[in-house]
Every structure is written in C-alpha cells, then in structure tokens.
C-alpha cells in the first residue's frame, strides 16, 4: 500500500495532494493509494480526497486543528505502521519537508527529499531531485520495507477526480503533546494569484530603486498580465515587500511559463528558486548581470524607462 498525506488549506484539498496521487499511481504497487487526511473539520477535504484515492483515512480531531511537526510525524508513522505502507509520500511543502524526516526516523526508513521523478524497479525506488541550489539533478536509490518521500510541488501532473468514490475510515491516533507553542502568526495575504500557481510571475529586485518603484514597475507590469508578484531577498530585507513574495533558496520555488525579472542581478540563491521556469525574461541595466546568462529574452536598459514602455506595448 502507498500512503499519501493529503495537504489542505482553507477547507480545500491542496494541489499537492492531487500531484501525490499521480506520483503514487506511477509506482503501480498492489494495494492502491491510501490518502490520509489530518486536521479538524475536514469532512469536505476527505470527500475531495475520496474522488482521487482508493481509500481515505481521516483523523478529524481538535488536536490537529493546527499543524505541528511532532504530532504530524506521530500520526503518519502510526498509520504507516498499522497499514504496512511500503511508501509514504508527503508534499514537499515547508511543513512536509519539516516533519517527513521525523517519520523516516520513526519508521527506520530512507528519506527521499523533494523528488521530481520516481520509478519502481524491482522494489528499489529510483528518484531524481535537485542539488547544489537547483543546479544539479541527482539520481538516488532507496530500498527497504518502507520508504518515505517528499515530492516537489509542480513536478507531477495533478490527478483528475474520477466518478468512483473511495471508502472513508476514521482512525484513532495516539498523539504526543505539542511542545512548540505558536503564540502568533502573520498570514501574508495579497489577494493576488498565488506565487506557486501562477503562469506568469513578475519579480522585482533592488534595481527598482524603492518600495514605490516596486509598486509602480512590478505591480504595474503584473496587473495587465494577471501575474503573481515575486521579490528578491534584497527587496524583502529592505522591507519593500513581504517575505511571502520572496523567491529563492530561502524563499519560494516557482516554475511558471514565464518569469519576468525586473532589476534583479541573478545571484545563485535567487536563481535556485526560479531557474526551472519555462521562459525567463530579464530587464537590467547591466549587460553583464548573471540573470542574462539564463534568460530567453531580455532588454538591457533602465527599468524606469523600459518597464513603462513594455506596459505601453502590452496595451497594443
């Protein structure tokens, strides 16, 4: 049996859950795909999972209203053990990558992190993942009675819900006490399309000059394109934009159809978060900026002149 942990947010099943189903089906193990839904008030999420998985296990308890690495790991390891899962698949989200190592240790299993491909050859799992700040693709093999894998968001196509509805079962879990106490949170909501899901991302760097420059040029270009907004660390550190928009090693990873970099130099740590974009466009006044080395299209010039001209040209 393959166990997938189905992530959800705001009452709906996340895109990553559908991608996990595709990744799991590719392994063609006997026993099908079991989705585990953890949370509080997750009836509709479980219902959505039942349209793509072969079986759904639901732990709906107030104790799981808020994510916690230790609680999640305990729950997943218990279900994996009881269900004799051969592969446990977890979304490569920040939380998924945080608790999955604990699951692997509990199960004494190998951990494949952030895989972009997964194949089963005679019980050995062959995976690919990126290394060296997304510059290298590494092939790794894992073997064992049970293997834990996190799956990179966007690497697999989303499974399409069918007409059959899988059976749902409630599960009882023995959960540890919460030790990391969350005393406050700032959810950064922008009202725009989410960075990870946008077809086009317009990202700004220090070259836009100021917070106002960012609004004018980056938002100004993103609006007519219906694009999401990205930013470099330099811009976030300067307080011009929220951390939620940061792209790179310590921010988000995106791979849109088009990534438009405005006033961004192209440091490796930034490239790490966007170098898999299908088409990269750069606007920078420095012809030698590293961003041009990985760009498909670009203009060498001052963003204050070029970007307004591009916005103009889009109107035509």
């Amino acid at each position: 049996m393959i166990l997938i942990v189905a992530e959800h947010a705001n009452g709906s099943l996340s895109k990553s859950a559908y991608e996990l189903v595709t990744a799991a089906r590719g392994l063609q193990r006997e026993g099908g795909v079991t989705a585990l839904v953890l949370g509080s008030g997750v009836v509709s999420v479980a219902g959505a999972a039942a349209l793509v998985a072969d079986q759904v296990l639901v732990a709906d308890t107030p104790e799981m209203a808020q994510y916690d690495a230790e609680i999640w790991a305990a729950a997943v390891a218990q279900i994996a053990t009881e269900g004799e899962a051969e592969v446990v698949m977890i979304a490569g989200s920040r939380s998924g990558r945080e608790y999955s190592p604990r699951v692997a240790v509990k199960l004494d299993a190998p951990l494949l992190e952030d895989v972009i491909s997964l194949k089963d050859e005679g019980g050995v799992l062959h995976a690919e993942h990126y290394t060296y700040l997304t510059r290298v693709t590494e092939r790794v093999e894992a073997q064992g009675a049970v293997i834990v894998a996190t799956v990179k968001p966007g690497a697999f196509a989303a499974a399409v819900p069918g007409s059959s509805v899988a059976e749902q079962f409630d599960v009882d879990l023995e959960l540890p006490k919460r030790r990391l106490v969350i005393t406050g949170s700032t959810k950064e909501k922008t009202g725009r399309i989410a960075l990870g899901e946008a077809d086009i991302v317009v990202a700004g760097g220090r070259g836009v000059g100021s917070a106002e420059g960012f609004t004018q040029l980056v938002e100004g270009l993103a609006d007519p394109l219906g694009a999401a907004i990205g930013a470099t660390r330099a811009v976030v550190d300067a307080g011009w934009r929220p951390y939620a928009e940061q792209v790179g090693q310590t921010g988000k990873t995106v791979q849109p159809k088009a990534y438009i970099a405005v006033g961004i130099s192209g440091a490796v740590q930034h490239l790490s978060g966007m170098n898999k974009s299908k088409c990269i466009v750069a606007i920078n006044k420095d012809a030698d900026a590293p961003i041009f080395k990985i760009a498909d299209y670009g203009i060498v010039g001052d963003v204050k002149e070029i970007v307004p001209a591009v916005i103009q040209a889009l109107r035509k």
Binding site: I283, A287, F292, I294, V300, A309
Partner: peptide, 16 residues
C-alpha cells in the same frame, strides 16, 4: 536558453 537580449537605448522599440 535563447538569450535574445535587446539593447534598450530606444525603450519603445525594444519594448515593442
């Protein structure tokens, strides 16, 4: 990568 990098001296032409 295609690396089609345009000179932006004439901003309007390059943008178009």
């Amino acid at each position: 990568r295609l690396k089609k990098i345009l000179d932006g001296k004439d901003a309007a032409a390059a943008a178009a």
